[in-house]
């Protein structure tokens, strides 16, 4: 516990960590503000303007129809029979509604679970993974890790204390930020009288809890990778390769059947308590199944197992390496 306290203090004193933690608050706050702004209720002025647009359109249109009736040959409509009807059919716009000019969607709390809510979890995972990476990377880059081992030579304890510190901070930060984010959205929904069922809020709560665990695993994995590579830059390179290039390359090489084994698919399965993903091999040829026939379900258990095995491999490799290899 003493070492964990020391590592928490070291983490707190690191300026880069402070900046990244500030990012964990500011960027989700920005996402929240953007969401609230984009879904703000339509004002009376906006309705008035939309109605004006519709009235102007109708006026312009009627003028066009009148001109068409007067000179049908110039507008390519038959000059005999029901000329007015033909002009209206050609240039009329039917029953245009002013709501068509109010394209802003109102706030739907339930939809945000898989929208901005997932976005915030992803942002937290990215920031806190960087926290784990820079925390370990700085110790290697400065060489201070060897100094620390002169005071506590039990390497497993040193590795573990740092991992617990990173994990604890990540869990607390992600829980606090996600709770605050959804609480702030609940306040907005209440103010706008947007209804969301108790079941919806239960789904959101569970997603946020599982999301916090995913964020914590990401941070510990970032830390463990850096303890293995002994370099922040190398770890960031590997993370970028896996997150971006690796996923694209995997789909390109192995086809869309590999989607089940991609990290985002399994993260989504954990956060959303199951996830439907595109699987071209799954009943795609059966016409009776319909447009969703190519979708396959990945359950919470399978997603959790996948992530747990992945993190366990990274942690195992990191601990083994740290215990066996010479420390510069």
């Amino acid at each position: 516990m003493r070492l964990v306290g020391v590592e928490l203090t070291r983490l707190r004193w690191r300026r880069a960590v402070t900046i990244l933690l500030a990012g964990c608050v500011l960027v989700p706050a920005l996402v929240w503000y953007s969401l609230v702004w984009d879904t703000r209720p339509v004002t009376a002025e906006e309705i008035r303007q939309a109605k004006e647009v519709v009235a102007q359109n109708r006026q312009d249109n009627q003028q066009m129809i009148d001109e068409c009736v007067a000179r049908p040959e110039e507008y390519g409509v038959p000059t005999t029979g029901d000329v007015e009807g033909a002009c209206e059919q050609t240039f009329g716009f039917g029953d245009e509604q002013y709501e068509w000019y109010l394209t802003r969607q109102p706030l739907d709390v339930g939809d945000q679970r898989k929208g901005s809510g997932l976005g915030v979890i992803t942002i937290l995972a990215a920031f806190l993974m960087l926290v784990g990476t820079t925390f370990a990377g700085h110790d290697w880059n400065s060489g201070s890790l060897s100094n620390q081992l002169l005071f506590e030579p039990r390497r497993l304890r040193v590795w573990g204390a740092k991992a617990v510190a990173v994990g604890a901070v990540s869990l607390v930060v992600s829980l606090v930020v996600l709770t605050a984010w959804w609480a702030a959205l609940w306040l907005v929904a209440e103010q706008r009288d947007v209804q969301a069922s108790a079941h919806t809020w239960e789904l959101i709560r569970n997603s946020a809890l599982r999301g916090s665990l995913v964020v914590t695993l990401a941070a510990v994995a970032g830390y463990a990778l850096t303890m293995f590579f002994r370099s922040t830059v190398a770890t960031l390179g590997v993370m970028f390769a896996v997150a971006v290039v690796g996923q694209i390359a995997a789909v390109a090489v192995f086809g869309e059947g590999v989607i089940r084994w991609l990290i985002p698919t399994n993260v989504a399965a954990v956060v959303f308590n199951g996830f439907d993903y595109y699987s071209p091999d799954h009943f795609c040829t059966n016409a009776d199944i319909g447009p969703n026939g190519c979708m396959e379900h990945l359950g919470l258990g399978a997603g959790t197992t996948y992530l747990a095995v992945l993190v366990a491999l990274v942690v195992g490799l990191s601990v083994w390496s740290f215990r066996r290899r010479d420390v510069p």
């Binding site: 070492l3 020391v6 004193w13 620390q148 005071f151 506590e152």
Partner: peptide
């Protein structure tokens, strides 16, 4: 001082 504090606290 911070560097030494961390080392001192590590050994109690």
């Amino acid at each position: 001082r911070q560097n030494l504090l961390l080392l001192a606290r590590a050994i109690g």
